[in-house]
Each structure stands twice: as structure tokens, then as C-alpha cells.
Design a binder for these strands. Structure first.
Length: 405
DNA sequence: AACCGCGTCAACCGCTTCCTG
DNA sequence: TCAGGAAGCGGTTGACGCGGT
């Protein structure tokens, strides 16, 4: 051998372990906008897309400077950020996205129906978790694998012991893959047919690609998946968000755990995304549509010109209200009023964690003798929700939203 | 209160499969 | 056709939380 495969990344140069909210945000924001055509290249590209924050602005305001100088500094910092990127292995990004951040990932416990499906499919397919997952919308192979190893395996073992109290029989069914109530021989005879049937079902779609987890979903016929999750052992506040998946035309109700900030901030992001998906249900995940205004890196005369004509923009208050209303309207479809409050709480949490805390900045601002008020166009301090038409063109008026990559 | 054992699950590792030039 | 690279997949690990002692 000697010539082993090159490592996918320099492990000393990447962060490992649990993902932070900020990293999640970077990843989701990037994938929402640009998809994930190249996982390896993604981390390096993912950093600069975080919306310009009030905090970021204010930390640079140590004295009253001209707004141009300020923005020049900011732009310089952005370029530095771009170099830094998301310090994660591409593989890790992919995994995080597929198993956790994807909009159609269903959170929460498996329903009885889902468990039965897993058991049935496992009898047929064995440990082909991705294949099993392709028949359970919203469930990932990793999740199914975990559930199998932690719950279903034991469940079936106990069931076997109950149904076959005699030693000989229990020995026969000791193999989990053949341990369900139906016999192994029946399964082996019917296995190929069922497998072929399952493959056939998958191949009904137009895609000719091999059945990978994302494509499987894509290939599936449109269907509604209801929230059938049983209450979890540890009661969590769950909210269901009806998301038309970008991966498919499937309307999937994904569950987002409000009590967990990581879940919730993603939920809010994805709700943002879902807003436009309603109108663009055929969009691929690799071409997401929701877009936020950003500060361009390059010398963009349109941008600088626009700075001078900011008066045509809405006031920052109105802007913020609109942004919140935009989110609220998304949440409003699925959240109760109380849950909206929680979302706001979460947004505060997220802002705080990411250093975007507006409240904190308000104080800072006053302490800075209102310097930023005149210096920083607050229209840039929040993501600016755009109309689909603007998204299509990538411009607002003469302002080009996207710097060329 | 401290410790321990166990369950859960996100993330990692390394192999396999597929794609592309 | 083949080799190299990238994505996908399945097994495994380890951190964390919880309940029992």
C-alpha cells in the first residue's frame, strides 16, 4: 500500500467536536444561498456571509469617524474573515447539514409507525441505514441507526424472548436482523422482491442518479408527512414548521425544538427560507433563494453610491420591524403567540451569542454619544428581507447584491 | 452531595462507491 | 480504461444527561 488516501483535511487546522450556534449559522447561511456542490470547498467560503451586525459596527466606533472610513475598516475585516472561513472539515459540514441542519430533518422521537417501518425495512435491507432512511422522510440514516441500536434492537430482543420462551427458538432468532416476529425464511424468500419493489418505488422519479440520501428524497413522489412523533421522554417544547423542502417538492413538517437554541435558530433561519419556497417549490436546495443584503468586498461603486442615497431606504426602525414582521409572519403560520415570544427570546439569545445583541448595542450607542446614529446606516445592521423579484435579479435598484466570488 | 452506571445521540473514522478528466 | 478525488455510508466513539445508590 504505502500510498494511502490523502486526508480530506488537515486535522490540526480544523475544529472538531460539537458545533456552535455560530458555526451552524455560518453553514446554514451559506448553504441556503449557495447550496453544497462542493463540501470540501464550502468551509473556506462560508464565513463572510454572516450579516453585518450592529455589534460589529459599533465595536469599530471608538470615536466619531466618517462613515466611509468605518465601512472601509469593516470591509477590510470582512476580507480577513473570508480568509479564515468556517474552520471545519468539509466532511463534517456535510454531516452536520445532513443530520441536523437540513430543513426537512424531523426532530423528536420516532412514532410507532416509523419504528415499525424501520423494523420492516431492516428485515429487508439489513444495516443499509441510508436506504432505510430514504423511506422515512425527515429521518437521517444516523438517526435511524441510533434508534435501532438503542431502542429497536432491545425491543425486538425482548419481543423475541416473550414470543419464544423456549431456548432453542430464542437461539434461532438471536440475530437481530432476523429477530422480528416474522420468520427469517419468509423474509429471505421475499427479501429480493421487496427490495426490488422499494428500488422501483425510488426509481419512479426522474433522477437517474444512484440512491443517495438527498436524492432519494428528491426522487420521492410528493407527499405529506405529518408530525407523528410521540412525546419525548424529556418533554420539550416542540413546534412544527411546515417547510416545503428545497430538496424536493415534499411538504415536510419538521420539528424544531424551541427549548434548544441550536434547533431554534436554525428553525428561524429555515422559516425565513420557507417563505420563498412557497413560491418556488421547484427550487433545488443548491439554489436557494432567500437572500440578505451584505457589504460587498470589492470596490463596488454601486454600493458606495448607494451609501450616499440611503435616505431612500426605509428607516432602521421600519426596517427592523419589517424584518421581525417577516419572521413573525413565518412563525405565525405555525407558532402560537406564546411561541412567537419564545422565538423573539431565541433571536435575542442568538444575537447575543453571535455578538449581534441589539439591546446591548443600544446602550453602547448612547454611551458613544449617539455617534453611530449618524455614522452607520442601520439598514445594514440587519438582514434585509427581499422580494422574490429582487432575489431573481440580485439587485435592488442599481445596487448589486452579490459581489462576484 | 458525590459517585457510578447506563442510555442517548452527535460527530468522527475509514472504507466503499461513484464521478470525472 | 483507469486513476484520483469527492461524496456517501456504516461502524464506532465519546460527551453529556439522568436516575439510582
Amino acid at each position: 500500500m504505502g500510498k494511502g488516501r490523502a486526508p480530506c483535511c488537515d486535522k490540526t487546522q480544523v475544529i472538531r467536536g460539537p458545533w456552535s450556534s455560530a458555526e451552524d449559522l455560518k453553514l446554514v447561511t451559506f448553504i441556503q444561498k449557495h447550496g453544497h456542490e462542493n463540501w470540501r470547498a464550502l468551509p473556506k467560503q462560508a464565513d463572510w456571509r454572516i450579516p453585518v451586525s450592529k455589534w460589529e459596527m459599533n465595536t469599530q466606533i471608538t470615536e466619531r469617524v466618517t462613515r466611509v472610513e468605518q465601512l472601509k475598516t469593516l470591509r477590510k475585516k470582512r476580507v480577513e474573515d473570508q480568509r479564515e472561513g468556517l474552520l471545519r472539515c468539509g466532511k463534517s459540514c456535510r454531516l452536520r447539514w445532513i443530520n441536523y441542519l437540513r430543513p426537512d430533518v424531523k426532530r423528536g422521537s420516532f412514532s410507532k409507525e416509523e419504528e415499525d417501518t424501520v423494523i420492516t425495512l431492516h428485515q429487508t435491507l439489513g444495516n443499509k441505514w441510508s436506504k432505510i432512511a430514504s423511506h422515512l422522510p425527515g429521518r437521517t440514516d444516523n438517526e435511524i441507526k441510533n434508534v435501532w441500536n438503542t431502542h429497536l434492537k432491545k425491543k425486538l430482543t425482548l419481543k423475541d424472548e416473550d414470543e419464544s420462551p423456549h431456548g432453542d427458538e430464542s437461539k434461532e432468532s438471536s440475530s437481530i436482523s432476523s429477530s422480528s416476529s416474522s420468520s427469517c425464511t419468509i423474509m429471505s424468500s421475499g427479501k429480493r422482491n421487496l427490495e426490488m419493489e422499494l428500488d422501483h418505488q425510488k426509481n419512479q422519479g426522474s433522477s437517474t442518479k444512484r440512491p443517495r440520501i438527498t436524492e432519494n428524497v428528491k426522487d420521492s413522489s410528493p407527499r405529506e408527512v405529518s408530525n407523528q412523533c410521540r412525546p419525548t421522554n424529556k418533554p420539550k417544547e416542540l413546534s412544527s414548521s411546515s417547510i416545503s423542502s428545497n430538496n424536493s417538492n415534499i411538504t415536510i413538517s419538521s420539528q424544531v425544538d424551541i427549548s434548544r437554541p441550536e434547533d431554534d435558530h436554525i428553525g428561524s433561519l429555515l422559516n425565513f427560507r420557507a417563505q420563498y419556497d412557497v413560491h418556488n417549490s421547484s427550487e433545488e436546495v443548491s439554489k436557494p433563494e432567500e437572500i440578505t443584503a451584505e457589504i460587498p468586498f470589492e470596490s463596488d461603486y454601486d454600493f458606495w453610491n448607494m451609501l450616499d442615497s440611503l435616505s431612500s431606504f426605509q428607516s432602521n426602525e421600519v426596517q427592523l420591524e419589517n424584518a421581525e414582521a417577516c419572521q413573525s409572519s413565518n412563525f405565525g403560520d405555525v407558532y402560537s403567540t406564546g411561541e412567537e415570544d419564545q422565538n423573539k427570546k431565541w433571536l435575542r439569545y442568538l444575537e447575543n451569542e453571535l455578538g449581534l445583541d441589539a439591546t446591548k448595542d443600544e446602550n453602547q450607542e448612547s454611551s458613544l454619544n449617539n455617534a453611530s446614529e449618524t455614522l452607520v446606516p442601520e439598514s445594514f445592521q440587519y438582514e434585509i428581507p427581499l422580494k422574490p423579484a429582487e432575489l431573481q435579479s440580485g439587485t435592488i435598484g442599481n445596487f448589486h447584491l452579490w459581489p462576484s466570488l
